[in-house]
Protein backbone atom coordinates (compact mmCIF):
# COMPACT_ATOMS: atom_id res chain seq x y z
CA UNK A 1 0.00 0.00 0.00
CA UNK A 2 1.40 3.39 -0.95
CA UNK A 3 1.50 6.38 1.40
CA UNK A 4 -1.09 8.21 -0.66
CA UNK A 5 -4.66 6.95 -0.60
CA UNK A 6 -6.95 7.16 -3.57
CA UNK A 7 -10.20 8.61 -2.25
CA UNK A 8 -13.26 9.13 -4.43
CA UNK A 9 -16.12 11.41 -3.50
CA UNK A 10 -19.26 10.27 -5.28
CA UNK A 11 -21.75 13.12 -5.59
CA UNK A 12 -25.13 11.54 -6.29
CA UNK A 13 -27.59 13.88 -4.60
CA UNK A 14 -29.15 17.12 -5.75
CA UNK A 15 -28.34 20.29 -3.82
CA UNK A 16 -30.76 22.10 -1.46
CA UNK A 17 -33.42 19.38 -1.23
CA UNK A 18 -31.06 17.59 1.15
CA UNK A 19 -27.72 18.60 2.66
CA UNK A 20 -25.60 15.65 1.49
CA UNK A 21 -24.09 17.48 -1.47
CA UNK A 22 -23.15 20.59 0.55
CA UNK A 23 -21.67 18.72 3.50
CA UNK A 24 -19.97 16.34 1.07
CA UNK A 25 -18.32 19.36 -0.51
CA UNK A 26 -17.19 20.57 2.92
CA UNK A 27 -15.44 17.26 3.49
CA UNK A 28 -13.68 17.52 0.13
CA UNK A 29 -12.23 20.91 1.03
CA UNK A 30 -10.64 19.47 4.17
CA UNK A 31 -9.36 16.40 2.31
CA UNK A 32 -7.46 18.64 -0.07
CA UNK A 33 -5.13 19.59 2.79
CA UNK A 34 -4.06 15.98 3.33
CA UNK A 35 -2.30 15.64 -0.01
CA UNK A 36 -4.15 12.48 -0.98
CA UNK A 37 -5.22 11.45 -4.47
CA UNK A 38 -8.77 12.85 -4.56
CA UNK A 39 -11.28 12.22 -7.35
CA UNK A 40 -14.79 13.66 -7.47
CA UNK A 41 -17.47 12.13 -9.66
CA UNK A 42 -20.83 13.71 -10.38
CA UNK A 43 -23.43 11.07 -11.18
CA UNK A 44 -27.23 10.95 -11.15
CA UNK A 45 -28.67 14.04 -9.40
CA UNK A 46 -25.16 14.97 -8.26
CA UNK A 47 -24.82 16.68 -11.64
CA UNK A 48 -27.29 19.32 -10.44
CA UNK A 49 -24.75 20.42 -7.80
CA UNK A 50 -22.63 22.01 -10.51
CA UNK A 51 -25.37 23.44 -12.72
CA UNK A 52 -25.04 27.06 -13.82
CA UNK A 53 -27.56 29.75 -12.97
CA UNK A 54 -28.53 28.88 -9.43
CA UNK A 55 -30.11 31.70 -7.47
CA UNK A 56 -31.07 30.62 -3.98
CA UNK A 57 -31.78 34.12 -2.63
CA UNK A 58 -35.57 33.88 -2.93
CA UNK A 59 -35.56 30.41 -1.37
CA UNK A 60 -33.53 31.77 1.54
CA UNK A 61 -30.89 29.04 1.30
CA UNK A 62 -27.13 29.51 1.12
CA UNK A 63 -25.80 28.97 -2.41
CA UNK A 64 -22.70 26.82 -1.97
CA UNK A 65 -22.10 26.09 -5.63
CA UNK A 66 -19.36 28.75 -6.08
CA UNK A 67 -17.19 26.65 -3.78
CA UNK A 68 -16.96 23.98 -6.47
CA UNK A 69 -15.10 26.52 -8.60
CA UNK A 70 -12.30 26.92 -6.07
CA UNK A 71 -11.53 23.20 -5.65
CA UNK A 72 -8.52 23.66 -7.88
CA UNK A 73 -7.00 25.96 -5.26
CA UNK A 74 -7.23 23.03 -2.87
CA UNK A 75 -5.28 20.83 -5.33
CA UNK A 76 -8.40 18.89 -6.25
CA UNK A 77 -8.34 18.69 -10.00
CA UNK A 78 -9.82 15.30 -10.86
CA UNK A 79 -13.47 16.09 -11.51
CA UNK A 80 -15.59 13.82 -13.69
CA UNK A 81 -19.20 13.99 -14.81
CA UNK A 82 -21.19 10.98 -16.00
CA UNK A 83 -22.23 11.86 -19.55
CA UNK A 84 -25.43 9.82 -19.37
CA UNK A 85 -26.57 11.42 -16.08
CA UNK A 86 -25.86 14.89 -17.51
CA UNK A 87 -27.64 14.32 -20.83
CA UNK A 88 -30.61 12.61 -19.18
CA UNK A 89 -31.13 15.86 -17.28
CA UNK A 90 -31.06 17.96 -20.43
CA UNK A 91 -27.66 19.43 -19.62
CA UNK A 92 -24.46 19.84 -21.59
CA UNK A 93 -20.90 20.61 -20.47
CA UNK A 94 -21.66 24.31 -21.14
CA UNK A 95 -24.30 24.22 -18.40
CA UNK A 96 -21.75 23.31 -15.72
CA UNK A 97 -19.97 25.80 -13.45
CA UNK A 98 -16.77 23.75 -13.30
CA UNK A 99 -14.52 22.33 -15.98
CA UNK A 100 -15.21 18.72 -15.11
CA UNK A 101 -14.32 16.08 -17.64
CA UNK A 102 -17.39 14.47 -19.18
CA UNK A 103 -16.87 10.71 -19.32
CA UNK A 104 -18.84 7.58 -20.13
CA UNK A 105 -20.14 5.08 -17.60
CA UNK A 106 -17.35 2.58 -18.29
CA UNK A 107 -14.74 5.19 -17.36
CA UNK A 108 -16.46 5.84 -14.04
CA UNK A 109 -16.63 2.10 -13.33
CA UNK A 110 -12.91 1.86 -14.01
CA UNK A 111 -12.12 4.89 -11.82
CA UNK A 112 -14.18 3.45 -8.95
CA UNK A 113 -12.37 0.15 -9.08
CA UNK A 114 -9.02 1.95 -8.72
CA UNK A 115 -9.96 3.63 -5.43
CA UNK A 116 -8.98 2.74 -1.88
CA UNK A 117 -12.10 4.46 -0.54
CA UNK A 118 -15.32 5.65 -2.18
CA UNK A 119 -17.40 8.05 -0.09
CA UNK A 120 -20.97 8.63 -1.27
CA UNK A 121 -22.75 11.95 -0.67
Amino acid sequence: MSDISKIMIMMRKAPYGTIYSFEGLESVLIMGAYEQDITIIFVDDGVYSIKKGMDTSAAGIKDFSPTFRVLEMYDIEKLYVDKESMEARGLTADDLIVGAEVVDTETITKLMEEQDVVLPF
Binding site: R12, V43, I108
Partner: peptide
Protein backbone atom coordinates in the same frame (compact mmCIF):
# COMPACT_ATOMS: atom_id res chain seq x y z
CA UNK B 1 -35.37 4.73 -5.33
CA UNK B 2 -33.02 4.47 -8.30
CA UNK B 3 -30.16 3.37 -6.02
CA UNK B 4 -30.14 -0.21 -7.26
CA UNK B 5 -30.36 0.94 -10.89
CA UNK B 6 -27.38 3.25 -10.43
CA UNK B 7 -25.45 0.56 -8.61
CA UNK B 8 -26.03 -1.86 -11.48
CA UNK B 9 -25.15 0.82 -14.02
CA UNK B 10 -21.80 1.73 -12.48
CA UNK B 11 -20.68 -1.47 -10.77
CA UNK B 12 -18.17 -3.68 -12.53
Amino acid sequence: STSLDSCVKFAK
